[in-house]
């Protein structure tokens, strides 16, 4: 910035910085937002702030898991004395495990949903700034194509996740509870179909998006490079003194805009991570501890209850996949804008 300031008038330097300012991180991400100038430094600061969050999240998740273990133990004891009433015990046990886990699962799903909404909201503020900055560098075609793809996908995935896939987690759990209570294979198959459907959708969207973003740079980059060559030729056709001034001015503005774009992109990168990480850790702790609980309960609990606990863990896994997908989409998009046209 010092070099640029020496070339550009001070007012213009600040005008470029003001013209391309990253939108402020949302409230939920402020706690983890690092004040760093480089990627490595920022990631290290985020990591330092995130690690202390793990312990309270683990405590919260482990309280839930202890309640589940208690429910499974009690059910096992009753089952061993129940004689011919095993079916009733199975249903009661399944219902007790489901009731124990439902409240925490519901709050995790709501947390996941809010995180997705916030990331999408932030993305819609960040992408136009990155687009303008990249276009100011001369990559007009590339910036428009990246903008269209990113905003389109963000709108789509935000809508599909909140209106379809997140409710499908509840349906997945309903099928899991029903199959746990009844032992019906058909319900297990429907449950698996739902899980596989959600996974397939997320993988497809990510694959299509990353492929498109990768190809866009190659295709539109050719057009932008050709346009830049035409502009350069036009400059050299102008009278020498003006041509020299024009050339210097263009380079100065390009360099300044590039720096502003990089600063905006870096801030946006950190902001997306800051919004994403805390909920990710909360849901991740629930996911891991439920997996461990399922493994422990396999020792003394019935197969149905162990599977049900595994299904709740899978639900947390699906939630992680959904929030992680949105975060990854936005990060990939930000990197594509930062990379621009080579």
């Amino acid at each position: 910035m010092t070099t640029i300031a020496a070339i550009l008038p001070p007012m213009l330097t600040s005008a470029i910085a003001e013209g391309f300012t990253a939108p402020e991180v949302l409230e939920s991400g402020k706690a983890l937002m690092p004040k760093a100038n480089t990627l490595g430094e920022g990631l290290a600061m985020i990591l330092q702030d995130v690690i202390p969050l793990i312990r309270p999240d683990l405590y919260e998740a482990s309280r839930v898991c202890l309640a589940v273990i208690a429910a499974v133990m009690i059910t096992s004891v009753v089952q061993s004395f129940s004689g011919t009433q095993k079916t009733v015990c199975d249903i009661a046990g399944t219902a007790s495990v489901a009731a124990t886990l439902l409240f925490s699962t519901n709050s995790m799903i709501r947390l996941g949903s809010d995180t997705i909404v916030e990331m999408v909201q932030y993305g819609k503020l960040l992408i136009p700034v990155m687009t303008a900055a990249l276009a100011a560098q001369g990559a007009v075609g590339t910036s428009a194509a990246l903008y269209a793809a990113t905003m389109g996908i963000i709108s789509l995935i935000g809508s599909v996740l909140s209106k379809l896939l997140l409710p499908m987690i509840y349906l997945f759990l309903a099928l899991a509870v029903a199959s746990g209570a009844t032992g019906q294979d058909m319900l297990k198959k429907f449950r698996n179909l739902m899980r596989d459907g959600i996974s397939w959708f997320l993988k497809t969207v990510l694959t299509v998006f990353t492929t498109y973003m990768g190809l866009t740079g190659i295709i539109t980059g050719t057009t932008d490079t050709a346009a830049a060559k035409v502009a350069k030729a036009a400059i050299t056709s102008v009278v020498p003194v003006v041509g020299g001034i024009l050339s210097d001015a263009s380079e100065s503005v390009l360099a300044s805009v590039a720096m502003a774009k990089n600063a905006v992109g870096l801030y946006g990168f950190f902001a997306i991570l800051a919004i994403f990480l805390d909920p990710f850790i909360k849901i991740g702790c629930h996911f891991l501890l439920l997996k461990a609980t399922g493994a422990m309960c396999a020792v003394f609990g019935s197969k149905a209850m162990t599977e049900l606990i595994g299904d709740f863990s899978t639900a947390m896994g699906l939630l992680l996949a959904m929030t992680g997908s949105v975060c990854l989409l936005l990060l990939i998009s930000t990197v594509c804008f930062l990379r621009g046209v080579s």
Binding site: T131, A132, A135, V140, A144, Y147, V253, L254
Partner: peptide, 23 residues
Amino acid sequence: YEEASDAAQEGERFARNSIAQII
């Protein structure tokens, strides 16, 4: 693409105006 084009043109306009100011 219309919205995308508007966003890109905004950046192009900004750069052009900055260059014009320097010139």
